[in-house]
């Protein structure tokens, strides 16, 4: 039953994506997958830019006075901040899906530093080599990664240097941690930077020639993220708090999409290699992927049917998913070692 549901969901998610007959065909499908998510990243980043423009417009309408803006438009500003956070998560999820590939390819690795993993120029190593020009003309030299150094702490109010005023965004009567209005100039500049660099990544990704090392790297870096996503689904139900990010749709839908992508990459590009050297290992990994997708699909079906999960059930499901993913990764890494594959990142 579980397998049947999985097959149905996978078909829905990847309709039209034919499984490859050869490693070469599989590698091409990996590239197509990466470009697809890169395009989605651009779309989400553009929506983030729109949200940042809306936020900045509300501040500008009050002459740049954040206190006055909050007094005049609390509802619109609260919605604007929530929109920025939601778009941040949407864009970040798209990037995380292809981070393993982007970071693993020499010609695109610099984008991983700029978008997600780089340090500011004040650090000794891993510096994101770019400057960010803000709408008011200010140039931030080597400011760090757009996702984690700049926008994440900005949108969630933990970048104290750019907090403008505390604000009761959720209307519960007090400004709780993270409930702030932040620098609109930086928010808009960073969102514009996100769009710019996501597009630059797309250009270089389009020029990339896929290869075996990158395919293996993608599978072993992306598959273990199931625990994070499953965990967010689980935690959102029982810990309350800032659930805005997960109200639009169940996190399980994201899990299904991302893990389906991992399964596709394994089946298309990695399996032909593993099967040649160790058919039993390939069969084990294939079965584990089927089991993982089935577990997520079945849980999503139950959730869609209105079932509520106890904390113990949610935990058990999350642990089971993570265990399967870790089993997959350990086996793929063993196959990689047998086949002399270099895992990057």
């Amino acid at each position: 039953m579980r397998l049947k549901i999985a097959m149905t969901m996978t078909t829905v998610v990847f309709a039209g994506a034919a499984f490859a007959a050869t490693e070469e065909q599989g590698l091409e499908s990996v590239k197509a997958f990466t470009l697809e998510h890169n395009d989605a990243l651009i779309v989400e980043a553009e929506k983030m830019q729109t949200a940042a423009e809306d936020y900045a417009a509300l501040i500008d309408a009050n002459g740049g006075d954040y206190v006055a803006a909050w007094a005049a438009e609390p509802q619109k500003l609260a919605e604007s901040v929530q929109a920025l956070r939601a778009q941040w998560l949407a864009a970040s999820n798209q990037y995380e899906t292809i981070e393993g590939i982007v970071a693993g390819i020499p010609s695109t690795a610099k984008y991983d530093l700029i978008l997600d993993a780089g340090n500011p120029g004040t650090e000794a190593e891993g510096v994101a080599e770019f400057d960010l020009t803000l709408p008011d003309g200010t140039v931030l030299e080597k400011p760090g990664s757009l996702f984690h150094t700049i926008t994440e702490p900005l949108f969630w109010g933990t970048d104290k240097d750019h907090v403008k005023v505390e604000a009761d965004l959720n209307g519960n009567g007090s400004a709780d941690p993270g409930e702030v209005l932040f620098d609109a100039n930086l928010a808009l500049g960073a969102a514009q930077g996100m769009v710019k660099w996501a597009k630059a990544l797309r250009d270089d990704m389009a020029a990339w020639e896929p290869n075996r090392d990158d395919a293996f790297t993608a599978v072993v870096t992306m598959t273990p993220t199931v625990g994070d996503y499953f965990g967010e689904w689980k935690e959102s139900q029982f810990l309350g708090g800032d659930e805005a990010a997960f109200v639009a749709q169940s996190r399980l839908i994201d899990v299904l999409g991302i893990m389906g992508g991992c399964q596709l990459m394994y089946s298309a590009a990695v399996s032909p290699v593993v099967a040649t050297s160790d058919a039993a290992l390939d069969s084990a990994v294939t079965n584990d992927f089927d089991e993982l997708i089935a577990l997520v699909s079945e849980t999503r079906e139950r959730e869609a049917a209105g079932e509520t999960f106890s904390a113990e059930e949610a935990d058990a499901l999350g642990s089971e998913a993570q265990d399967i993913a870790e089993r997959i990764v350990s086996q793929v890494l063993q196959a990689a070692a047998k086949n002399g594959v270099e895992i990057k990142g």
Binding site: W156, T158, N170, D176, P177, G178, L239, G240, G241, D242
Partner: peptide, 13 residues
């Protein structure tokens, strides 16, 4: 500290 929970867990617990 509540900041630890908010920043690392994203929960206003």
């Amino acid at each position: 500290l509540p900041e630890l929970i908010f920043t690392n867990l994203r929960r206003d617990m």
